[in-house]
């Protein structure tokens, strides 16, 4: 099935933009997201095909505008929810706890 991820040969893209002396990670959250994906993958919670397919199910606009590790975040959340390991309600509660901790 062809989707927005199937980019080979698609016209309309500009030059390949490179960054000199690019770091492995640009932000701390990217480090954490990378490790979370690799750890849950290594733990056998999902396989690589499921992971890629989860990314491919993103809304085309989100897919094209989202950065690489945002795709990973979307996919890991999605897969762990689908497999019943976590729930949206648990994520919401944890998010509120973190936000509360942050405000004075």
């Amino acid at each position: 099935m062809s989707g927005v991820h199937d980019l080979a040969g698609r016209p309309g893209f500009g030059p390949v933009v490179r960054e000199a002396a690019e770091p492995v990670f640009h932000e701390e959250w990217e480090r954490r997201m990378f490790a979370l994906m690799v750890a849950t993958f290594a733990g056998g919670e999902f396989n690589l095909d499921e992971f890629r397919y989860a990314i491919e199910r993103m809304e085309p606009k989100e897919y094209l505008e989202g950065s690489y590790y945002e795709h990973w975040l979307f996919a890991v959340e999605q897969l762990l929810i689908e497999k019943g390991l976590i729930s949206e309600a648990e994520l919401r509660v944890m998010r509120e706890r973190i936000e509360k901790r942050k405000s004075p």
């Binding site: 959250w29 490790a35 979370l36 976590i86 944890m94």
Partner: peptide, 23 residues
């Protein structure tokens, strides 16, 4: 995005689905 990653990590650690040292 930072908050979502923090949320996911905290939840997975709390549920012992990941080990912070392994991360």
């Amino acid at each position: 995005v930072v908050l979502r990653v923090k949320t996911l990590e905290s939840l997975l650690v709390e549920k012992k689905l990941v080990d912070p040292e392994a991360l």
